[in-house]
Simulated scan of single mutants.
Amino acid sequence: FAPLEGWRHVAVRERRTAVDYAHILRDLADTHFQEAERIVLVQDNLNTHRPASLYEAFDPAEARRIAERFEWHYTPKHGSWLNIAECELSTLARQCLDRRIPDRGKLEEQTRAWEIPRNQGGTAVKWRFSTEDARMKLAHLYPQIS
């Protein structure tokens, strides 16, 4: 999910392995964002979400090439970027996955049918939590200067 661009892509896989994750990253780098000089990747701390996953899937030169395309950022457990991704997943669940889907082919068809109009509509996230908001809300975390 690229929240500021209003773009998302759902990849249906049999499992969630490190190798599956590596193939998703290669797809992002070489297909969806091939023109980007650097891709900012904000993600959770799942054990497969590491550059090392690329080395499990590809030869070292290919893994390094892909890894260098990304700027890696890991969110804290309650990070607001992670909340944005979870909101998008919740929307997917409510609008697309709220029923029994009999097989993988049908699941791919349904997620594509959900994804395309959302991308065409450019459904983006409006970031509302500014630095000033953070300073007010999280004032107890800032040191008091006398």
Rank of each mutant, 00 (worst) to 15 (best):
A67F: 03
I101V: 06
D103K: 09
N47M: 10
V40N: 12
L41P: 00
T91K: 11
S90F: 12
E37I: 05
E14W: 15
C96H: 07
H73C: 07
E108S: 15
A63S: 03
H23D: 04
Y21D: 01
M136N: 13
A63F: 01
A22N: 00
G121V: 07
T123P: 01
P102K: 15
Q120K: 11
E115H: 09
W7Y: 14
D27W: 01
L82R: 03
H49E: 05
R99G: 08
A2S: 13
F70G: 03
K77I: 09
W127I: 04
Y55H: 11
P51R: 07
S90Q: 10
E5S: 14
S80P: 03
S80W: 12
A85N: 08
R112I: 13
I101M: 05
L25D: 00
L107W: 06
R118I: 03
R38K: 14
L89Y: 09
H32L: 07
Y142H: 05
E115R: 12
W114D: 01
R65T: 02
Q120L: 11
G122P: 02
R100Q: 14
D59K: 08
Q95F: 14
H73R: 11
Y21K: 01
E88R: 09
I101N: 01
W7L: 08
Q43S: 12
Q120M: 10
I66K: 00
L4C: 14
T131H: 11
W7V: 05
R118N: 04
Q43L: 14
A22P: 00
E35I: 00
E14V: 12
P51A: 11
G121H: 12
D133C: 06
D133Q: 07
W127D: 04
H9I: 09
D20V: 02
E68C: 06
G79L: 05
K77H: 11
R65W: 02
T91I: 12
A52H: 14
L138I: 05
